[in-house]
Simulated scan of single mutants.
Amino acid sequence: MQGFFQRYLLLYRPLISRLNELLSESELSYSLWQVIFFVKNNGPSTLVEISVHFNVEKPTITRTVQRLEEKQIIKVIQGKDRREKIITLSESGEDLYQTCRQKITKLEYEVMRGIPRDELNAVFEILPKIRENIINLEGDRHE
Rank of each mutant, 00 (worst) to 15 (best):
F54S: 04
H53C: 07
T46W: 11
G43P: 00
L47M: 12
I50R: 05
S45G: 07
I74T: 09
K71Y: 05
R63N: 13
E57S: 06
K80D: 12
I73K: 02
L68N: 02
E57K: 13
S51H: 11
K80Q: 13
R67F: 00
E57V: 00
Q78I: 08
V56S: 04
E49I: 07
K71H: 06
K58C: 01
V52I: 12
R67T: 05
L47W: 02
I77W: 01
K71Q: 14
G79S: 10
S51N: 10
F54M: 05
S51V: 07
V65Y: 01
N42P: 00
T64W: 07
E70C: 03
Q78F: 07
I61M: 07
N42W: 04
F54E: 03
V65K: 02
F54T: 02
I73R: 03
S51Q: 10
E69Y: 09
E49A: 10
T46Y: 12
I73P: 01
V76C: 11
T60W: 07
I73M: 08
K80Y: 05
I61C: 07
V56E: 05
V52C: 03
T46D: 06
I74F: 04
P44G: 12
E70G: 05
F54L: 06
I73E: 01
V65S: 04
R67K: 14
I73W: 01
V76N: 13
K80E: 14
I73Q: 03
Q66E: 14
E69L: 11
S51F: 09
S45P: 01
V48D: 15
V52Y: 10
Q72C: 02
I74G: 04
I74Y: 03
R63F: 05
H53Y: 15
Q72P: 00
P44K: 13
E49N: 08
S45A: 13
Q78S: 13
